[in-house]
């Protein structure tokens, strides 16, 4: 075993300081009393109060959550179907095109995705608003979901499903009772990924939203273009807090279930002996 040297410790410390210091500063200064963001004038929570009274922000937050819940749910269904097609369906006409269309959106610049979808919506005369944002987010998020789910499906032992079919399950029952519980962790993390991508997206939403709907990132964007503002600091702190709690608790839960699984497997091995 090689020693963990001073060099390693220093690079880790500096690296993580670089990753976290900007966000820590943002959080600290969100409690700053002064309107001048960079001058500390004492502790205050007044910007949080102003934020909660700002209807424009609250409306945007509501639109964003609606869009994120709808699009991540559609994306999970479509993405899981696409993963099943990619891993299970073998050859069919246009398979190469299909897998190309799954992987291309992952590397497509957002400005191009946004532009092309907007031109489509205008071309077919669809009124822009919440619906068009949901359609756009579903499309790019389903590709991420299908990548996550297919990595789980690859390692899935298909004979389990065949056994269920032999024992009289219909194909749909076999999927629901055997396959789905096994790939569930991947489906859930796909949903979470799609949800975060949707919450986070500025560029595609700006192209596809139209004048009637504004999402939170669009609202943040129009106000940070004018410079740093204490209200945005407060909003950012809330968002960072929610994400941190979510990610940490998710990792604790998955750690616990991994330990539980190890225990179960060990118990099963013992009873085999």
């Amino acid at each position: 075993m090689r020693r963990f040297s001073w060099f390693n410790a220093t690079s880790l410390t500096l690296g993580f300081a670089f990753l976290y210091l900007p966000m820590v500063i943002l959080v600290i200064y969100s409690f700053n009393k002064s309107k001048l963001v960079t001058v500390w004038a004492g502790f205050s929570t007044k910007w949080y109060g102003e934020l909660l009274n700002n209807d424009a922000f609250l409306d945007a937050a509501w639109v964003t959550i609606k869009v994120a819940v709808l699009s991540s749910t559609f994306a999970t269904v479509l993405g899981t179907m696409a993963a099943l097609v990619l891993i299970r369906s073998g050859r069919f006409f246009g398979r190469t095109l299909f897998s190309g269309m799954i992987y291309a959106p992952l590397v497509m610049p957002e400005v191009i995705t946004g532009l092309s979808l907007l031109l489509l919506f205008i071309g077919i005369g669809l009124d822009r608003g919440v619906i068009t944002i949901v359609l756009a987010h579903t499309t790019f998020a389903m590709c991420y979901v299908s990548v996550v789910v297919s990595s789980r499906l690859v390692s899935f032992d298909q004979s389990l499903e065949e056994a269920a079919l032999d024992l009289g399950c219909s194909p749909f029952q076999a999927f629901r009772l055997v396959t789905l519980p096994i790939i569930a962790p991947a489906v859930i993390s796909g949903w979470l990924l799609a949800f975060t991508l949707s919450l986070d997206d500025l560029v595609i939403a700006s192209f596809t939203a139209g004048p009637s709907a504004t999402t939170l990132p669009m609202k943040i964007w129009s106000s940070v273009r004018l410079g740093v503002s204490p209200e945005i600091n407060a909003l950012s702190t809330l968002m960072i807090g929610i994400v941190a709690i979510g990610v940490i608790s998710a990792s604790l839960i998955s750690k616990r279930s991994a330990i539980q699984q190890q225990r179960d497997e060990r118990a099963a091995e013992r009873s085999d002996d």
Binding site: L12, M23, T38, D200, I232, N233, S236, M239, V247, S251
Partner: peptide, 30 residues
């Protein structure tokens, strides 16, 4: 834990992470 610490910023808003540098780098910034 280190891995989690690297992934965590990825889940926080991209826009906010970029924005956090505006206060640091501006002329009267931190």
């Amino acid at each position: 834990t280190l891995l989690l610490l690297v992934i965590l910023p990825f889940w926080t808003s991209f826009l906010i992470r970029v924005y956090s540098w505006m206060g640091i780098l501006s002329q009267e910034g931190y």
